[in-house]
Design a protein around this nucleic acid. Structure first.
Lengths: 116, 116
DNA sequence: CCCAATCGTTTCACCTCCGTATCATAAACG
DNA sequence: CGTTTATGATACGGAGGTGAAACGATTGGG
């Protein structure tokens, strides 16, 4: 049980988590890359390059390159859609799920500290 | 009154706010720039380039350039410390305070929706 | 069939960011 | 004073991101 998060506490939450991500050792993602990753893991599949581009309001190459970068980090994977081979289906990976699990725990823990 | 924010809700919160920032028309900040801005506005002054660099675990040029960029957007301002003219004191601006007010409201509003 | 439409990728020129190294200025100290 | 130390800014090369445009691959409608 906790009181509603107030704006000042919300900023402190963003601040602390942002610091943890910036100082973070391993993965460092662009804000757009993180937005892509969260969309893939939180919204119902299937996910396509075009759909993600529209969702974020950016051009398709932005998505392609974000997927390249995160694919190299093994956070997502791609495969052709067998039904329509023009499409590319973006899939989750174990490492990506683990990364977001930890991020969710981090945010929730800081929120609990700020609004007990 | 709200239940404690759970990890999955925390991720949804980050996702929605991240989307709003990415799609947002106006100010476009790097995660490091936002971390600098939040530090300036949330932690007690005075703030110096060196102190901010240590706080974020980055080199001094990163801070100098972040301040350049955010100074152009009128989110922060700099002035020499009259006591020790080697130092630069980073100061808040009306526009920066307004931007962070709106961000705090945005986060708090989304959090209230997610964990009612 | 064939040709237009769709999808993801690639190319291009430009810009910004990063860290290292260096610089100019200013204070501290012998 | 002159030297050392400290601070912030700048130069530089490298890496990566961005949008616009063009490109292959694939589909589906006429």
């Amino acid at each position: 049980m906790s009181v509603r998060l107030r704006p000042i506490q919300a900023l402190r939450l963003w601040h602390e988590v942002g610091l943890a991500l910036v100082r973070g050792n391993g993965v460092d993602l662009t804000s757009r890359q993180l937005a892509v990753l969260l969309t893939i893991y939180l919204e119902p599949p299937p996910h396509t390059v075009r759909g993600l581009a529209a969702k974020l309001g950016v051009t398709k190459p932005v998505i392609t390159r974000a997927l390249d970068a995160m694919g190299d980090m093994d956070l997502v994977s791609r495969r052709r859609d067998p039904a329509d081979r023009r499409n590319v289906i973006i899939q989750r990976t174990v490492r990506g799920a683990l990364f977001l699990d930890e991020l969710g725990d981090l945010i929730a823990a800081r929120a609990a500290e700020l609004a007990p």
